[in-house]
Design a protein around this nucleic acid. Sequence first.
DNA 1: ACGCTACTACGATGAATATCGAAATATTCG
DNA 2: CGAATATTTCGATATTCATCGTAGTAGCGT
Lengths: 108, 108
Amino acid sequence: MDDTQDTWLPQPDIDSVDITTVLQALADPTRLQIVRALAAVEESTCTALDVPVKPSTVSHHMGILREAGIVSTRLAGNARPSRLRREDLERRFPGLLTAILNATPPTR
Amino acid sequence: MDDTQDTWLPQPDIDSVDITTVLQALADPTRLQIVRALAAVEESTCTALDVPVKPSTVSHHMGILREAGIVSTRLAGNARPSRLRREDLERRFPGLLTAILNATPPTR
DNA sequence: ACGCTACTACGATGAATATCGAAATATTCG
DNA sequence: CGAATATTTCGATATTCATCGTAGTAGCGT
């Protein structure tokens, strides 16, 4: 069969995404951890991510990130690897994702 | 009397601020509106801001922004004009505030 | 002193949400 | 086919939080 075409879960057009929605999605510690992990590997499934919450919660967070236009999710067998929409986000909100990923831990 | 010294409300050291706290503070529509308004005028009191919530709510939001390291609040008579901590934020999270302030409305 | 203004603090309330477990779906593997 | 895997969906719960009204504090003007 022709398997060169990937199927993707529905995701918003990047131009229709509001900055408030993006900030709300990124303003959660667990989701920020997911985003950082995805930034390091470029693609990962829910179960491969090392986050301290249950699988159903990871799936929930991934859905929030997807609907906010932050990640794309591909259908690959029974898995759904997601990746950051880096170029889309850079075009829509230049410098935003970079600034967040470059953020250093606070001094305690 | 020597009135060259301003008095300020307590605010966190910018280096001790966490990115999650900043994102949470900015992820609210009303607070984002306040931040945008402050970016336009450089200094403003709570009552001078044109936001669609009651004064006690504006004060609440300003406190959140202050504790997140986003605004500084000066004591001036009975008023408390606040301003964006632009340079502090730029040093702590380079490009973040600029990216958010430059965000354009979504296409609907 | 008295009223007016600006803001803060407190308590209450209703809505949003992060988390979990269980059930359902779909796919791969034996 | 049957079992295991990956993920989603649903329901429940507990917490967080945005908003408001009222009351309190403090400075300014008359």
